[in-house]
Design a binder for these strands. Structure first.
Lengths: 129, 129
DNA sequence: CTTGACCCTATAGTTACTACAGGGTGTAGA
DNA sequence: TCTACACCCTGTAGTAACTATAGGGTCAAG
C-alpha cells in the first residue's frame, strides 16, 4: 500500500500522513526500492484510529495517549475514561461560550437599522462609550 | 500613557499590544526620549474597539475591516452588517458541530464499564472493526 | 547606588496541519 | 522509444493569533 492509497482509505491528505510520521504518531513504514513508503494493514488500523479520534476533537497529544493506552489491552480503562471525560467537559465549555456569543451577536445584528455608519448600532456596541 | 498602562486599561497583554502594532492594527504611537511608546486616548479607544470585537470572536481581518468602516461615519452600515451576519452564521455552524460532537462523546463516555482496555467501549468506538 | 519594575528589539515557539519548490519514479499511449 | 502524467520523495515555510524568551536599556524609591 502506497501513501496515496492509505491516505484515500482514511480520508486523509498525503501530507498529513507524512506529518503524523514526523511527529511519531504513526511509525515509519518499510520502503520500496524506489524509496516509496509501503504500508500494511496495521498502519491502516492505526491511522483509522487516529482519524476517528481527531474527528471527535481529541488533540494530537490526547490521541497519542489513547494510542498508548489502547496498546496495553490488560490495563484498566480508567485513564481512557478520564481523557474522554475531560474532552467532553471542554466541548461543553466551548458550546457554552459560543452560545453566549451567539446571543450577543444576535442582539447586535438585530439592532442594525441599515443607516449610515454614524448611527450603526453594531459599531456603537464595539466603540467605547 | 505607557504600554503597560494601555495594556492594563484594556485587559490586554503588553506583547499583544506590540503585536497589534506590528500587524498594523494599531498605529505606532509617539515615543518618549527613552524610546518608550507614548499612547493617547485615541489609542485607548482604538484598542478597546479591537478587544471587544475580538471578544465577540471576529477574526483579526474582520476587525481590520470593521475599523476601516467605522472610520468613515457617513458610509452605509450595510458592509458592517454583512460582516457581523457572516460571523453569526459561522458561530451557529460551530455550535452545531460541537453539539453533534457532544452527543457522540456523551454516548461514548456513557458506555464505559470501567473494565480493562480490552473491553473498553471508548477504545472500541475508535478502533476500526 | 542598587534593586526592582518597567520598557525596548528580535526571534522562536504554539496547534495541526497545508503548501510549495525542486527533484525522482512508474506506466500508458503515440 | 519517447513522453506525458500521476504519483512519490525531502525539506522548508506558511497559516491564526498570539505568547514567550533572550539580551539588553530606563527610571523611581529606598
Amino acid at each position: 500500500m502506497k501513501i496515496g492509497d492509505l491516505a484515500k482509505a482514511t480520508a486523509t491528505k498525503v501530507e498529513t500522513v507524512r506529518y503524523y510520521e514526523r511527529i511519531a504518531l504513526l511509525s515509519p513504514p518499510a520502503r520500496t526500492s524506489a524509496n516509496y513508503r509501503a504500508y500494511g494493514s496495521e498502519h491502516l488500523a492505526r491511522l483509522s484510529f487516529i482519524r476517528r479520534a481527531r474527528d471527535l476533537g481529541f488533540t494530537i497529544e490526547a490521541v497519542r495517549e489513547l494510542l498508548t493506552l489502547s496498546d496495553d489491552r490488560s490495563q484498566s480503562c480508567q485513564a481512557v475514561d478520564n481523557i474522554a471525560r475531560a474532552h467532553l467537559t471542554e466541548v461543553e465549555r466551548k458550546i457554552g461560550d459560543l452560545t453566549a456569543l451567539r446571543s450577543e451577536l444576535d442582539r447586535v445584528v438585530g439592532a442594525c437599522r441599515h443607516g449610515t455608519v454614524a448611527e450603526c448600532k453594531i459599531i456603537e456596541t464595539l466603540a467605547p462609550r
